[in-house]
């Protein structure tokens, strides 16, 4: 495993896109939070906003910010790591050198798994720093209660990455792959869910879509209010419950991983 992670690291460490994406991610993650804190708001709203930055809410807010960043930066990174090997024909060269198809996919998976690990640690670090300075009284339970959200954050990052790898592997061409990655998540899947599924079967099954499940792992922190608002109206919630999201996302991630191996084994390279 270490051998394959190092292989991917040797490829990526000098790759400009990887460096830029990492730099932007490391920078924007805390900056977005700082920017939010600097918003001048009326007194009542201010107390509400301040509560975002104290334990344990800070992990929900930061997690939601991380949700967007992971969708863009981590997903892109994973996708580019595959299309990079296609456009330079180095995937073919890797095989010629003696890497097996299976090892190629494993090296990508292990590498993104490791990156997601670092990102999650970074998330915990930033959340802890903000929480530490903004929480009047800190209890150990603030962390132990948050363990579940740490796990879900990791699963979310990994989910975006695996989806990025799959789109990159199927499409091969960088520009088109990025377009489809974005278009699927932002338009196609929501379009199918709201425009088609909900009209045919209007129940919570319309939420059982891969990217929706991954996104709902760390939902908008205001979702309870949204559910309260929307829920009574349609007779169902607009977000998956935490357990549902974990279950559905895990199943789709497993399916994506299966497809990664399936596609590469079918192909002439």
């Amino acid at each position: 495993m270490g051998h394959l992670i190092k292989l991917e690291w040797l490829k990526m460490k000098n790759y400009t896109a990887f460096r830029v994406l990492s730099f932007l991610f490391v920078l924007t993650f805390p900056l977005l939070l700082i920017a939010g804190k600097r918003i001048q708001a009326p007194q009542q709203a201010q107390t509400f906003i301040d509560s975002f930055y104290s334990f344990p809410t800070v992990f929900e807010i930061l997690g939601y910010v991380g949700n967007w960043l992971a969708f863009f930066f981590l997903g892109f990174m994973a996708l580019l790591s595959v299309t990079n090997d296609y456009t330079n024909k180095t995937l073919r060269q890797n095989m010629l050198t003696g890497l097996s198809r299976k090892e190629f996919i494993l090296s990508k998976l292990y590498f993104v798994a490791a990156v997601c690990g670092f990102v999650t640690l970074y998330y915990i670090l930033i959340g802890s720093v903000f929480g530490f300075f903004n929480t009047p009284k800190i209890y150990l339970s603030d962390f132990t209660d948050s363990l579940a959200i740490f796990g879900k954050f990791y699963l979310m990052c990994f989910g975006y990455c695996v989806f990025g790898l799959l789109i990159g592997l199927i499409i091969k061409k960088t520009g088109l792959a990025l377009f489809i990655y974005l278009a699927y998540t932002m338009f196609i899947e929501p379009g199918i869910r709201w425009g088609f599924h909900s009209r045919v079967i209007n129940n919570s099954t319309m939420h059982y879509y891969p990217l929706n499940a991954i996104e709902d792992l760390i939902p908008n922190p205001l979702k309870d209010k949204a559910d309260a608002f929307q829920g009574n109206f349609e007779g169902m919630t607009i977000f998956l419950s935490s357990t549902e999201a974990i279950l559905v996302a895990t199943i789709y991630i497993a399916l994506f991983i299966f497809l990664l191996f399936f596609v590469i084994n079918k192909r002439d390279l």
Binding site: N14, N88, K89, T90, R92, M95, T97, G98
Partner: peptide, 14 residues
């Protein structure tokens, strides 16, 4: 393939 050295068509490197 680890025991074989290969050039196939164009040179492919990063």
């Amino acid at each position: 393939n680890t025991k074989i050295g290969t050039i196939l068509e164009t040179p492919n490197f990063y």
